[in-house]
């Protein structure tokens, strides 16, 4: 009976320890943790060139084979735009391209962009807790911000400088969270 209890306890501790020792990390390109990366667009509509783009990157590290990157969006919300609200800049007006690169020992097939993020989409595809990347492979056993094994996630936002947009300011935010499934 005692041996059985000890075995059970050992298994339980082993399972939970594995989970407890797991780590997850998001840093920016300069390895700063929990980064805030501003995407600023300031433009006047014009005939051409008529797109304005912004690119931002984050680094993901996980010591577990299973992980997920999820995203939540608010806005863009007009703060002082005048005109028909249907002519305000909307999330669907902003194209969104994700790409993932592996560095160091991170498996090249270990991070998979989930549809519709596997090809170009727009910002409206991100809503609340939207599943963006399915991680099926760990990057290494360490999540230290200096660890050279990581996935670099690049997001590129582009906005057409359309004359239909109401002049004004629009603010929004996308939050990315790394979780264990």
């Amino acid at each position: 009976m005692i041996i059985k209890n000890l075995l059970f306890l050992f298994l339980l501790v082993a399972i939970i320890s594995n989970k407890a020792l797991a780590c997850l990390s998001i840093t920016d390109d300069f390895n700063n943790p929990n980064p805030v990366i501003n995407a600023n667009f300031r433009f006047e509509p014009d005939i051409s060139p008529f797109t304005d783009c912004w690119t931002g990157t984050i680094k993901v590290r996980s010591s577990q084979n299973g992980w997920r990157l999820i995203a939540t969006r608010t806005g863009p919300t007009a703060s002082n735009a005048e005109g028909d609200p249907s002519d305000n800049v909307m999330a669907s007006d902003i194209t969104l391209d994700f790409s993932v690169q592996n560095f160091g020992m991170a498996d090249s097939n270990g991070a998979i962009l989930v549809s519709p993020f596997s090809s170009q989409t727009n910002l409206s595809s991100i809503q609340y807790g939207t599943f963006v990347i399915s991680g099926v492979s760990k990057t290494s056993n360490s999540c230290s911000s200096s660890n050279p094994n990581y996935y670099k996630v690049t997001k590129r936002l582009c906005l057409f400088r359309d004359f239909v947009f109401n002049p004004g300011s629009y603010e929004g935010q996308v939050s990315y969270i790394l979780i264990n499934p």
């Binding site: 020792l21 997850l24 998001i26 509509p45 800049v89 936002l157 603010e171 939050s175």
Partner: peptide, 15 residues
């Protein structure tokens, strides 16, 4: 054990 788990991208657009 989770060192950092979030990134925030504020989006500001001025037309």
């Amino acid at each position: 054990k989770s060192f950092s788990q979030s990134a925030t991208v504020p989006i500001n657009i001025n037309v």
